[in-house]
Write a protein that binds this DNA or RNA. Structure first.
Length: 560
RNA sequence: UGCCCAGUAGCCAAGUGGUAAGGCAACGGUCUCUGAAUCCGUCAUUCGUAGGUUCGAUCCCUACCUGGGCAGCCA
């Protein structure tokens, strides 16, 4: 059992703590600001977790803000999926749902102020020309020929931009900062562009739209954000963030803090590629259980608790790191161990006939849903009879050393039932084992006085006639590349794991699973954790493997 | 090549001037009617490298190396 421990320290938490202690802030207000232009993935989950749990930890609040300042890329359909995903992760923004689009008038007013201050100007350069004037990483930029227009002219032109007098791309409003700055973000960045486009929220009210750097800091300020947490790639934007707020002299000046995003080995998180994988049919959709999207991992059966646990365990730093998948798997098993009913399911069935068991007889055996150490109770009856299925892997005609499952002449315990002994092996014309004939020892039934007779191995099974035919889907990582996002040259499609999806169409599950519900999670004993998938029908349930159990035998084999 | 950031074990990660927490993985053992879980143990003479400051440096300074970010009218 794990005891509650104090939340781990991290540098952001320390900053917040100090700000509270010093009186800089009385409370904490954070925000999660997704752009509604796609589906959230596990990388976003860390940001969600960080912002919400940080606020929570100090009795503050976290806003959900749609960062929707680009009408060309965003769509209302994503707003709903984002909200659903955040909720699923277990976080609640209450009434604090905001949209940058609702601040368009504020952004505009601030821009006018900037112009009046002489800190912004309308520039007539084309996009290509702006690029030329900007200079390079090593050479300073040159001032735009329009940089020194009068305040009056700028105001007039900017109003003209707003009123739709100019074509898309013909002019921009730019901040007047420093064309020679070694930080390219400060070389008179554009703050407004002309886009005669319909906005999913603001409709056709505007034909000029603000840029991220400009809109984001003002949004934060308007909402009274105390700590504006973002990922590392915005580090070079922080001077700009501060410049806008300082220059505009806004009363609230949040502190931008950057952290490194969550990256998992063998997992692709690039938005463009994820979209490509969906549209090209490489995966079945945004919610394909192999996808790292929140929708995908939800369908895969991952629990929100385990995702939060992972975020907490890997911590918050500025070092760019690739987390091993085993870490995630461990979080999953740790969570599921205390939640999932233990049941029996045979993935790859092999028929077993008990030659000395009465034909037509079915016994109902008691089967607890949890092992003792989990501390949870409840049980069901499992039918036992003359014909059973066991796992193909649990029988070997010519086993290696230390194999203690079923083998010719050998004994094994059927979990929660009897000890059986293999008497005969039946093969087809190709020499494959198709049936095993065994005798059972009637004195050894679990729960009876004879249960204490020991044999080396215990295997799982289902009774043939009452078992439920099912499809089971096994998943592995989608890519064979440890860092698929880092692929420099070459096509990521060349590194698809051929075993990322294995469908087992003829699995057999114990009777009790016939009445399970979509979304219910179970441990199929000795195999792993599974969730009932939405593709299930009345006749044929479909189960997704969430994560396998650790396999000490496989490890042993590897060493040999 | 300019600026910014990071570099503590196989993977994460604390420590930030007084002599290297913790987790994952691995390994050994315990237990077991799940080869799971549990439980117990082992696992950095050393913190990217080289200098310097100091009685003392993972921590401060300098240089270098490695990795990442930045030249959208994307976010």
């Amino acid at each position: 059992m794990q005891t509650e421990t104090a939340p781990p320290v991290n540098f952001i938490r320390q900053i917040v703590e100090e700000d509270l202690k010093s009186g800089k802030h009385q409370t904490v207000v954070t925000r999660f600001p997704p752009e509604p232009n796609g589906y959230l993935h596990i990388g976003h989950a860390k940001s969600i977790w960080l912002n919400f749990s940080l606020a929570q930890a100090f009795g503050g609040v976290c806003h959900l803000r749609m960062d929707d300042t680009n009408p060309l890329k965003e769509d209302a359909q994503y707003v709903e999926s984002i909200k659903r995903d955040v909720q699923w992760l277990g976080f609640d923004w209450g009434t604090r749902e905001f949209h940058a689009a609702d601040y368009f008038q504020d952004f505009f007013d601030c821009a006018v102020k900037l112009i009046k201050l002489g800190r912004a100007y309308v520039c007539d350069l084309s996009a290509d020309e702006v690029r030329e004037y900007r200079g390079t990483l090593t050479e300073p930029g040159r001032p735009s020929p329009w940089r020194d227009r009068s305040v009056e002219e700028n105001l007039d032109l900017f109003l003209g931009m707003r009123d739709g007098q100019f074509e898309d791309g013909s002019r921009t409003l730019r901040a007047k900062i420093d064309m020679a700055s070694p930080n390219i973000n400060l070389r008179d960045p554009a703050i407004y562009r002309i886009r005669k486009a319909h906005h999913h929220r603001a409709g056709d009210a505007w034909c000029i739209y603000p840029m991220y750097d400009y809109a984001h800091c003002i949004s934060d300020s308007l909402e009274g954000i105390t700590h504006s947490i973002c990922t590392l790639e915005f580090e070079n934007h922080r001077p700009l963030y501060d410049w806008f707020l300082d220059t505009l002299q806004l009363p609230v000046h949040p502190q931008q803090i950057e952290f490194s995003k969550l990256k998992l080995q063998y997992t692709m998180l690039g938005k463009r590629k994820l979209r490509e994988m969906v549209t090209s049919g490489l995966v079945s959709g945004w919610d394909d259980p192999r996808m790292p999207t929140i929708a995908g991992i939800r369908r895969r059966g991952y629990t929100p608790e385990s995702i939060r646990d992972l975020c907490e365990k890997v911590g918050v730093t500025k070092s760019e790191v690739w987390t091993e998948l085993s870490y995630l798997a461990e979080c999953l098993r740790h969570d599921l161990n205390t939640k999932a009913y233990r049941v029996m399911g045979v993935l790859r069935p092999l028929k077993v006939v008990l030659t000395n068991y009465p034909e037509g007889q079915i016994e109902e055996l008691d089967a607890a849903y949890f092992p003792e150490d989990v501390g949870l109770h409840g049980s069901r009856k499992v039918p036992f009879g003359r014909e059973l299925y066991i796992e193909q892997d649990d029988f070997m005609e010519d086993p290696p050393k230390k194999y203690f499952r079923l083998q010719p002449g050998g004994e094994v315990r059927l979990r929660r039932a009897y000890i059986i002994k293999c008497q005969e092996v039946i093969k087809d014309s190709q020499g494959r084992v198709v049936e095993v004939r065994c005798s059972y020892d009637p004195d050894t039934r679990s729960g009876s006085p004879g249960e204490h007779r020991k044999v080396k191995g215990t295997i799982h099974w289902v009774e043939a006639s009452t078992s439920v035919p099912a499809e089971v889907r096994l998943f592995e990582e989608l890519f064979t590349l440890e860092q698929p996002d880092n692929l420099k040259d070459g096509d990521y499609r060349d590194f698809i794991n051929p075993n990322s999806l294995v469908v087992l169409p003829d699995s057999r599950l114990e009777r009790s699973l016939a009445h399970s519900k979509v979304g219910e999670r179970f441990q199929f004993e000795r195999q792993g954790y599974f969730i009932k998938d939405q593709d299930s029908t009345v006749d044929k349930p479909v189960f997704n493997r969430i994560v396998p159990l650790k396999d000490g035998w496989a490890k042993l084999l590897q060493k040999q």
